[in-house]
Design a protein around this nucleic acid. Structure first.
Lengths: 118, 118
DNA sequence: CCACCAACTTACCAGAAGGTGGGTACTCTC
DNA sequence: GAGAGTACCCACCTTCTGGTAAGTTGGTGG
C-alpha cells in the first residue's frame, strides 16, 4: 500500500485537508523532524549530543522540534536534577515506529542524492 | 538501517548541512511533496485530477511542486497539444522508488493519527 | 569576583512559503 | 455572443518558518 487511493480504499476520507493524519505528517516532515528522529533512532542522546549530531540545527529549532515530538508522544524527555543539568532524550515505542517508517525515505535520499541534484 | 549514525558508518559526512541528500529530503518532505508523489503512485493523472486528489492544494503550489519534481526527474510531464489542452503527469522509475520510500511514512501517519493528535 | 558550564528561553527580524484573485488562449456548446 | 472548460502564469500580500543573539539558572573552578 503506497498510494493515496489505496489508503482511501482502506479508510474513506483519510488524508483530506482536515484529517488528523495531515497534522502528523506535518510534524514528521517538518524541516528538522526527520533528522532529529533519525538521530535518536539508535539510542538516548543528551541535548548537546543531539545538537552536534543534527548538523546545522539551531538551538531554537532543536527545542521546538523536541517539544513537538514530546507532546506527540514520540520522544521521551528525562531531566536529571544535577549540577550541571543533564537531560536525556530517547524515542518512545511510538517514536521507534516513526523512525522505522522514516528509514526508507532517508535511504532513498542518500542513495539518489547525486542523481537527483545533478 | 534506520539511524543517522548507521548511515554515516556506510558513508561519512552524509546528511550534514551541505550534503546533497539534504536537498532531496527537503523536496520530498515539502508541504505537498509527499501527497503529490503518493497521489501519482498508482498511475497517471491529469492536472485537474491531481488537484482534486490532493485535497486542499492551491494551483500555485501544485504547479510549483510538480515543477520541482519534474526537474528532479521524479515526475514525467506529457502535454498533448489538443483543444481543450490535456497534460498528464506520471512517475518516472525514480519517482516510483521515491513513492515506495514514502509509503511507510504515510501508513504510520494514518495509523497513528488519532493516537498522536489526541 | 568573574567567567563558565549545561540546557534552555525570549525577543527580534529577514526571507521564504504559500494563499488569493486575477488573467491568458483556445474552442466548443448553448 | 456569452459562458464554460482546461491548464496554467503572474502580482500581491500575509503568514509562518527559522536564524541570530542575548538572557537565565545555579553551582563550580580560577
Amino acid at each position: 500500500m503506497v498510494s493515496l487511493q489505496a489508503m482511501r480504499l482502506a479508510q474513506d476520507g483519510v488524508l483530506t485537508s482536515n484529517c488528523p493524519s495531515r497534522v502528523v505528517l506535518d510534524h514528521l516532515t517538518s524541516k528538522w523532524g526527520v533528522l532529529v528522529l533519525s538521530a535518536l533512532a539508535d539510542g538516548t542522546l543528551r541535548w548537546g549530543e543531539l545538537r552536534r549530531e543534527v548538523d546545522g540545527i539551531s538551538e531554537k529549532m532543536l527545542a521546538a522540534t523536541l517539544r513537538t515530538f514530546e507532546a506527540d508522544g514520540l520522544v521521551h524527555r528525562e531531566a536529571y536534577p544535577e549540577i550541571p543539568p543533564r537531560v536525556e532524550y530517547s524515542l518512545t515505542a511510538l517514536g521507534r515506529e516513526a523512525a522505522e517508517a522514516l528509514g526508507p525515505l532517508l535511504r532513498f535520499a542518500v542513495e539518489h542524492a547525486e542523481e537527483i541534484v545533478g
